[in-house]
Amino acid sequence: MDANVDSPAPESSSPPLLHPALASLSFLLGTWRGQGEGGYPTINSFSYGEELHFSHLPNKPVIRYTQKTWKLSSGEPMHAESGYWRPKPDSTIEVVIAQSTGLVEVQKGTYSTSEKVIQLQSEIVGNASKVKEIRRSFQVIDGNLCYDVQMATHTITLQPHLKAVLKKI
């Protein structure tokens, strides 16, 4: 066996190459921070601080995604999730997200590079006793990343749940 196969790549001072499949969503790459609002028919409304981070793996057709939220008043952590986004050449996208609550989402959707819009719809919501469906919509407007999340449970139809406006830092 070639010893170089299992060895890590040598350190390089140049940034990792962006896989060509990610060029259409390169506008997402980086760290975004801002504030959001949440609510649902079964909970009180709330506000939160949030940070999203999108990065790419060297020469791989996937975007790594991490998210964390905190209480604005105290900075206390509220929620976190992470996953991977896989854009396809036909403007479709596959996304997997694992939440700190134990819930896992497998989503599919579409994206528009010219409009900087991504629409996601849950295919599977795993390990969820109540959540039946999740939809996420992202759009860059005037340099801000704006998103909203809708959610349905087994007893409540699809309703607004979260929305935020984030600036690239």
Rank of each mutant, 00 (worst) to 15 (best):
Asp2Phe: 03
Ala3Met: 14
Asn4Pro: 01
Val5Ser: 11
Asp6Phe: 13
Ser7Tyr: 04
Pro8Glu: 13
Pro8Met: 13
Pro10His: 11
Glu11Leu: 14
Glu11Asn: 11
Ser12Trp: 09
Pro16His: 08
Pro16Asp: 02
Pro16Lys: 03
Pro16Trp: 05
Leu17Asn: 11
Leu17Asp: 10
Leu17Thr: 14
His19Val: 06
His19Lys: 08
Pro20Trp: 07
Ala21Leu: 10
Leu22Lys: 12
Leu22Pro: 05
Ala23Trp: 01
Ser24Gly: 02
Leu25Thr: 10
Leu28Val: 09
Leu28Trp: 06
Leu29Tyr: 03
Gly30Arg: 03
Gly30Met: 08
Gly30Asp: 08
Gly30Thr: 02
Thr31Asn: 02
Arg33Pro: 00
Gln35Ile: 06
Gly36Val: 05
Glu37Ile: 07
Glu37Asn: 08
Gly39Gln: 05
Ile43Arg: 15
Phe46Ser: 12
Phe46Gly: 12
Ser47Ile: 10
Ser47Pro: 02
Tyr48Phe: 15
Tyr48Leu: 10
Glu51Pro: 06
Leu52Thr: 04
Leu52Phe: 14
His53Ile: 12
Phe54Asp: 01
Phe54His: 07
Leu57Ser: 13
Leu57Glu: 12
Pro58Val: 02
Asn59Ile: 04
Asn59Ser: 15
Lys60Phe: 15
Pro61Met: 06
Val62Ala: 15
Arg64Trp: 10
Arg64Glu: 08
Tyr65Leu: 13
Tyr65Ala: 03
Tyr65Asn: 01
Thr66Ile: 13
Lys68Ile: 08
Lys68Ala: 13
Thr69Met: 11
Thr69Asn: 00
Thr69His: 02
Trp70Asp: 02
Lys71Leu: 12
Lys71Met: 08
Ser73Thr: 04
Ser74Leu: 07
Ser74Glu: 09
Glu76Gly: 11
Pro77Thr: 04
Pro77Met: 05
Met78Gly: 03
Glu81Ala: 03
Gly83Met: 03
Trp85Ser: 01
Trp85Gln: 00
Pro89Ile: 04
Pro89Tyr: 09
Ser91Phe: 10
Ile93Ala: 02
Ile93Tyr: 06
Val96Tyr: 11
Ala98Asp: 07
Ala98His: 05
Ala98Tyr: 08
Thr101Ser: 15
Gly102His: 01
Gly102Ile: 07
Leu103Ala: 13
Val104Asp: 03
Glu105Thr: 00
Glu105Gly: 01
Tyr111Phe: 15
Ser114Glu: 15
Ser114Asp: 11
Ser114Val: 07
Ser114Ala: 10
Ser114Met: 03
Glu115Gln: 13
Glu115Thr: 06
Ile118Ser: 01
Ile118Ala: 01
Gln119Glu: 15
Gln119Pro: 00
Leu120Gly: 00
Leu120Asp: 05
Leu120Arg: 04
Ser122Lys: 01
Ser122Tyr: 00
Ser122Cys: 02
Ile124Ser: 12
Val125Cys: 10
Gly126Lys: 09
Asn127Ser: 14
Lys130Cys: 07
Lys130Gly: 09
Lys132Ile: 00
Lys132Asn: 11
Ile134Met: 05
Arg135Asn: 09
Arg136Thr: 06
Arg136Gly: 00
Gln139Glu: 13
Gln139Pro: 04
Val140Pro: 01
Leu145Pro: 00
Cys146Phe: 12
Cys146Ala: 15
Asp148Met: 09
Met151His: 05
Thr153Lys: 06
Thr153Asn: 05
Thr153Trp: 07
Thr157Glu: 14
Thr157Tyr: 09
Thr157Ala: 15
Gln159Pro: 03
Pro160Met: 02
Pro160Val: 06
His161Val: 12
His161Cys: 10
Leu162Met: 13
Lys163Ile: 04
Lys163Asn: 14
Leu166Gln: 05
Lys167Cys: 12
Ile169Ser: 14
